[in-house]
Structure formats: structure tokens, C-alpha cells
């Protein structure tokens, strides 16, 4: 086990015993430090939550206004029974933090989900030095190398425009929290009418209240006249793709924005006419950049291709180990 004795991988998730808190617990625990508001990191039913102010707002939206959540500002240190804890941007989605833990003269950084590519809706990833790193490995294979987001958005606009010329709607599937807002923030303001599936409305509203500049968009009503949708862009969560409302849009061009669109098979299986390689996670080179910049010599890997990355790091002379929770998967970017 390469984790220090004061940071353990338990069935409930990562546990820091001296501080008495779990980080991104999988089950209800007494005290949860939450890296960001995605469902696989922020579970309901915990006694107390600790999060960044932006994440706290999203947590209240997801888990209820009344949940006991303590906010800790970016870069400020909280001392919990001798453990020094602070939050630093991970660049993943709005509010997403790396958790820096310092105890007994040693620093461990828990990245949560991390993205090194640019995103106008959140603070950019900030390197944090540490002796050890708990790193996500959702896309830890060398086939995953993201194209420049600017080029992806140019493709996306071209696809939308072509559909608009044919008078058909463009139905774009994207995760409800993070990815959808990143898309809304990257569209030029005059590109055309944009509609949102109901599930996207609330998180989008929180982003707007936070002062993030997003393209204007309307909720897609069940009664929306088809002629209003011609030439429009409709954003919807992937889980809704088989819903009656989406099926009614039979004439629409369908596309999906996800890192998994790097692989043709995933796009073809869903009979999508376009796949936009747009991920909120680090790609293979990005993961190596995070490791290098942290200066860590011990790396514990969670999610996705943990084994593969651990083996590669060991060959490069680092101490690395994959989490034993083998079937643990990302929920915010599950393969379609």
C-alpha cells in the first residue's frame, strides 16, 4: 500500500483518520470532503459536507437546500486535528477542487476529477506540489489525446449550421452538469436558437447566478412547435436519448460531446452522425503533465484505466498503485 497510514482506501472511499473525514465517499459517512458536485463524488446522506463555495451551491441544488455544508474558500487552510486541508482548482467543472492534505510533514494531493484543457466556466487547473497524488485515470490510455477544444467547437458549429441549412434541429447530448454549460459558454452569441432539456435547466441557472457568461437558451417545452426547432440546437443529457420527447425529434441530427467519441465504435453504436471529442477529464498527456507538475513520487489511481496507468508509471520509476475497486466508474463521463 503506497498510501500513508493517515490516508486509507476503505470500502466507503478515501478516509483520513486523524482529520476524521472521507474524501468523495461512496456511502453516507459522518464527514465528507467533496471535490465537486458530480453524483459519483457527492452522495446524499452524509452528516456534514465540506466543499468550495461554488460546489456548495451545486450541492444544495442536488442534495437539498438544508444539507449541512461548510464552505472553504480557494487556497484557505482548514486545520482538522493537525491535518492541514485546502482546496485548489482542478479545472474539471465549476467549483471542482483538488484537495491538498498535509500531515506529519507529508503532503498528499487528491485530484478528484481533473482537466488540463481550457474551460471558460471554471478556474483553470492549478498544479499543486505534493509527495503523493491520488489521481483519477478515467481516460488513461494513449489512444486518448484530445484535440484542441477550439477546433472541436468549430466542428460543432459547422455541424449545427449544416443542419440548420437543411431545416433540421441539431440534438446534442452532453452531461447535464459541467459539459452542457461549457458548451453554452463557448457558442458565439448569435449562432442561432438554443433549447435545453429540462434536466439542464437548474444547473445552468446556478452557473448564470454565479456570473458565468452563457449563451441564451430556452427550456424545451413538450408543446414546442416543431417549426421553432428547425435549425435550433437542443442540448440534452445522454440518459434522455431514448425518452419519448427525444424520439419525437426523429428528423434531428444527433451528436454526442464526450471523450469517448474518440472511438468510432461508441459513436456508431448509438447511430450518431457526429461525435465531438470534448472531455472534462485529462487525456493521456494531460495526466502525465499533472503528475510531473505535482512532483509526486507516489501515485494512487482511481477510476477507469487505473491498472494501465499504474503499470506505465512503475515502468517509469514511480511508485504507483491502482485502486482495488475495479468496477468503479465515472458517472459524469460513462461510456455511451
Amino acid at each position: 500500500m503506497i498510501l500513508p497510514p493517515w490516508l486509507q482506501a476503505t470500502a466507503s472511499g478515501l478516509f483520513c483518520a486523524p482529520a476524521g473525514c472521507h474524501i468523495d465517499p461512496r456511502r453516507p459517512v459522518a464527514r465528507a470532503v467533496v471535490s465537486h458536485a458530480h453524483a459519483d463524488h457527492a452522495r446524499p446522506g452524509c452528516g456534514r459536507y465540506l466543499a468550495t463555495p461554488e460546489t456548495a451551491r451545486l450541492l444544495r441544488l442536488r442534495l437539498g437546500e438544508a444539507i449541512p455544508v461548510q464552505e472553504l474558500a480557494w487556497g484557505r487552510t482548514l486545520v482538522l486535528n493537525g491535518v492541514r486541508l485546502s482546496f485548489h482548482p482542478s479545472g474539471h467543472i465549476r467549483g471542482a477542487a483538488q484537495v491538498r492534505l498535509e500531515h506529519a510533514g507529508e503532503v498528499w494531493v487528491v485530484t478528484g476529477d481533473v482537466k488540463t484543457a481550457s474551460d471558460p466556466t471554471c478556474l483553470p487547473y492549478e498544479p499543486v506540489r505534493g509527495h503523493g497524488l491520488v489521481l483519477e485515470s478515467t481516460f488513461a490510455l494513449p489512444i486518448f489525446r484530445w484535440p484542441d477544444p477550439a477546433a472541436v467547437f468549430a466542428d460543432l458549429l459547422a455541424w449545427w449550421r449544416k443542419n440548420a441549412e437543411e431545416d433540421r434541429p441539431s440534438l446534442l447530448f452532453a452531461y447535464a452538469l459541467g459539459k452542457s454549460q461549457r458548451i453554452l459558454a463557448s457558442l458565439p452569441p448569435d449562432a442561432g436558437p438554443v433549447f435545453l432539456h429540462g434536466a439542464l435547466e437548474a444547473p445552468t441557472a446556478v452557473y448564470r447566478e454565479d456570473g458565468v457568461r452563457l449563451s441564451a437558451a430556452r427550456r424545451l417545452a413538450a408543446t414546442e412547435a416543431p417549426e421553432n426547432l428547425r435549425g435550433a440546437l437542443i442540448l440534452a443529457p445522454p440518459a434522455a436519448s431514448e425518452s419519448p420527447a427525444m424520439r419525437r425529434l426523429a428528423a434531428a441530427g444527433r451528436a454526442f460531446a464526450s471523450g469517448w467519441m474518440q472511438i468510432r465504435g461508441f459513436r456508431r453504436r448509438r447511430a450518431l452522425e457526429a461525435g465531438f471529442v470534448l472531455s472534462d477529464h485529462a487525456d493521456w498527456p494531460g495526466l502525465f503533465a499533472v503528475i510531473r507538475q505535482s512532483g509526486a513520487e507516489r501515485v494512487f489511481l482511481v477510476h477507469g484505466f487505473a491498472e494501465e496507468l499504474a503499470r506505465t508509471l512503475r515502468a517509469a520509476g514511480l511508485a504507483a498503485e491502482a485502486s482495488a475497486a475495479e468496477h468503479e466508474r465515472e458517472e459524469d463521463e460513462a461510456p455511451p
Binding site: 490510455l141 489512444i143 472511438i263 468510432r264 465504435g265 484505466f305 503499470r311
Partner: peptide, 28 residues
């Protein structure tokens, strides 16, 4: 791509298509 054979095999297993795996492993 400067990767060991086992890692190539892991990539191929994900992609499920040899021609495509090779395509993705090399830079544009």
C-alpha cells in the same frame, strides 16, 4: 507510439479495431 506491447493490446481491446487503434496512437 513509444509504448510497450501490453499497452498496445489494452488500447486495441478498448477500440476493437486494429486500423483505428493505430490511427489514434499516433499524433495527427
Amino acid at each position: 507510439a513509444n509504448i510497450p506491447d501490453w499497452l498496445f493490446a489494452a488500447c486495441y481491446e478498448q477500440v476493437g479495431d486494429l486500423a483505428e487503434t493505430i490511427t489514434l496512437l499516433l499524433p495527427e
